[in-house]
Design a protein around this nucleic acid. Structure first.
Lengths: 213, 213
DNA sequence: TGCTCAAATGCTGTGCACAAATTGGCCTGC
DNA sequence: GCAGGCCAATTTGTGCACAGCATTTGAGCA
């Protein structure tokens, strides 16, 4: 890993997280110069990062205007979720990674974090936990192409959830998430990655339905 | 569409086609300066294009060395194909676009082109036809996310076919492709997009198996 | 003749200055 | 008072020059 690609990854992750956790809600202007100053680089490397975010549909650059965080329209959301459902199912079928003790230990960490969160829930904390759990789910798939496609889709619409949480019941969402973890624990204990994938799929589906309510 | 994004699309399509049709086979050095001169721009806009190609895994930029067209290793090929199979199936299930007379007319065009090709087959001509037909297949899907993911995967490994054709029977490949078109015509005549997708999936699967032989 | 090392060459990465474009405010004229 | 146009400020897009890095090549030497 060179210094250049290292910095790229750092900037990219930071901006993506900023967008998906609504530190930069849709419509926010991401000034190249301001960000370059903040991260201690010049505009050039930063523009490389913004270009990738634009390819992924998270921002939109307009000449003479600025680089704006995009919004997610309803139809796009529907289509992305429909595809994510199927990809999640495929993760359990195509080439599941072997379930090891480390896998189960990681899940236990998530259970602990979810317990702690349920005691003092915050929207942002939940969104962060959910994002980390998504990354964990991807690590259970051996198919790199599937992993990349799923990741792309996830981040494309991840900010929707935090936008909708005011209309939802946070405590209830935490409880449901904890349920999912418990069910997944059972699946992992039985060495059944396909069952784990189906559980995840079911919860993504239900989550989408609650989103629309 | 601004002039800038127009040029970007033009450069991007040109380079991608150059890579996938083996005008620039794996290992080729794509010199930024040479390409900039050829397309009549400076290095800056061209680097934006190369950056995207790198994100998509078609080239790899190395500091002090050059920007090289990547090779496709066997495992990557296997994983991409495995996922493409499933996505093709999904194209017929998730949100198939309505089949119109124009759809059928387009297919007839492909039949004619395939007939002409079968009379005087060339590897490059076949690859080009196959690429166009892939784009046609995508147009039958209403799910934008699915379309983009499929396109990405297709171009990621498209160059493999032309690399392998010397070890295969070109005339036979043409005949098989013509068969697929005829079967698809039947499916479209019956207004059955799911059947069309299954046919496509079956042929992609068989194509992959012939590739490995 | 073969090996080593250093200089030169060619490439991508970066920073900076300028061009192009849009927006919003202000001013003028009616 | 209002409408319309013009101008200036702000922002992204582009071109260029230089820095940093890897490879190559050739001279010198054993």
């Amino acid at each position: 890993m060179t210094e250049a690609s290292d910095r790229f990854t750092r900037l990219y992750s930071a901006l993506r997280e900023r967008i998906c956790l609504l530190d930069a809600p849709p419509g926010t202007k991401l000034s190249e110069e301001a960000l370059a100053a903040e991260f201690g680089t010049s505009r050039t490397p930063l523009r490389r990062v913004l270009a990738r975010l634009e390819d992924e549909g998270l921002v939109e650059s307009r000449h003479g205007v600025g680089t704006l965080v995009t919004d997610v329209d309803a139809e796009e959301l529907r289509q992305v979720y429909a595809l994510r459902l199927e990809l999640t199912h495929l993760a359990g079928v195509l080439s599941p990674a072997p379930i090891t003790d480390e896998t189960r230990a990681q899940l236990e960490d998530f259970v602990q974090r979810a317990d702690a969160l349920a005691a003092a829930p915050t929207p942002r904390g939940f969104a962060q936990l959910n994002m980390d759990y998504h990354a964990f789910g991807l690590s259970l798939t051996g198919n790199v192409a599937l992993r990349e496609a799923s990741e792309r889709l996830y981040f494309r619409t991840a900010r929707i959830w935090l936008q909708s949480i005011p209309r939802m019941d946070l405590a209830s969402e935490c409880a449901i998430f904890l349920d999912e973890l418990h069910q997944t624990r059972t699946a992992l204990a039985a060495n059944d990655p396909q069952a784990a994938a189906l559980i995840r799929r079911a919860h993504i589906s239900m989550s989408m339905n609650r989103l629309y309510a």
